[in-house]
């Protein structure tokens, strides 16, 4: 009997090891595919630029971008700030706008989705604000808030706020009736059900909204830095336009993309931590 249990336990361990091995192999394969996709794209780009298929006036070669990246780490020319300063400046704008959007948008969406009266009160205002393009707030923002960080963060906030609110709203609306009824049967109050059943159920969609929001925040960055800036990645792109420097524009775009990717991965990690209980 004891030997049987031992054998079964060994078999299980072998199975787990096999599954883990397979998962690792799949992960390595996926990473390789992702890397080869990026490298393939860069290779096609380099070939097209070197062969003259694409006019060099309109697109810089990838190697030139790499070279400029290294130069910009220490050289403030031609836009007046080194890359590090530009990155920090843009992070300050995008993360303050994004952070504000998450702090306000997510709880608001959860409350609107759970409390019908609050939803009826807030929804018309939200529906009016929702379709307004974030950049159209620029003239009013200048008048109301001047041209400092606050004004730029508000432009980014408008872009990031909508997906945060909509996704948390939809997420909590989709809470299973069965779970709600079980909680009710156990004598939980409405607020306890909201806190212990509604919010955890809404988290998957909420995180999806947050990921969309961070994308929107970076997408609006250039417009926000058009408002007024003396450094930042959007500003660097604008100066690239001003001086006919396609390489500077592309470098700005690539760095924004890379930072967006890093932040997105950080959000993924946070999601895995928060929603670990949902995963198999």
């Amino acid at each position: 009997m004891a030997q049987n249990t031992k054998t079964r336990s060994n078999q299980n361990n072998e199975r787990i090891a096999l599954i883990q091995k397979q998962r690792k192999r799949t992960q390595v394969q996926n990473t390789m595919l992702a890397a080869s996709g990026i490298l393939g794209f860069i290779l096609i780009w380099q070939i097209a630029a070197v062969s003259g298929l694409v006019n060099s006036r309109y697109i810089a070669k990838p190697l030139e971008i790499v070279n400029l990246f290294i130069v910009k780490l220490t050289d403030p020319n031609p836009d007046g700030a080194v890359l590090g300063v530009n990155v920090m400046s843009s992070l300050a704008v995008s993360l303050s706008g994004f952070g504000l959007a998450v702090l306000i948008g997510v709880p608001l969406g959860l409350f609107m989705g759970w409390y019908r009266g609050f939803d009826s009160f807030m929804r018309p205002i939200f529906e009016i604000i929702r379709p307004i393009p974030p950049v159209s707030w620029i003239p009013l923002t200048i008048v109301w808030l001047g041209i400092g960080l606050k004004a730029k963060a508000i432009i980014v906030f408008f872009a990031a706020f909508v997906p945060c609110l909509i996704n948390s709203y939809t997420g909590i609306k989709q809470t299973s009736e069965v779970l709600i009824n079980v909680a009710k049967t156990c004598g939980a109050s409405n607020f306890t059900i909201f806190r212990k059943v509604g919010i955890p159920s809404a988290m998957t969609l909420t995180f999806a909204g947050i990921k969309v929001a961070i994308g929107n925040a970076w997408a609006t960055l250039v417009a926000a830095e058009m408002l007024a800036a003396s450094s930042g990645l959007g500003y660097m792109i604008l100066m690239g336009r001003q001086f006919g420097r396609v390489d500077l524009v592309i470098l700005g775009i690539v760095v924004i993309g890379a930072i967006g990717l890093v932040i997105s991965k950080l959000i993924d990690m946070l999601e895995n931590k928060v929603l670990g209980w949902k995963k198999l």
Binding site: I142, G146, I147, L227, A228, A229, S230, Y235, L238
Partner: peptide
């Protein structure tokens, strides 16, 4: 101290009390 703005927005900002 310098702040970059396009001309139309610069006047709006200046009227709003900035700079």
């Amino acid at each position: 101290k310098s702040t970059n703005m396009d001309v139309a927005n610069a006047l709006t900002g200046f009227k709003g009390g900035t700079g």
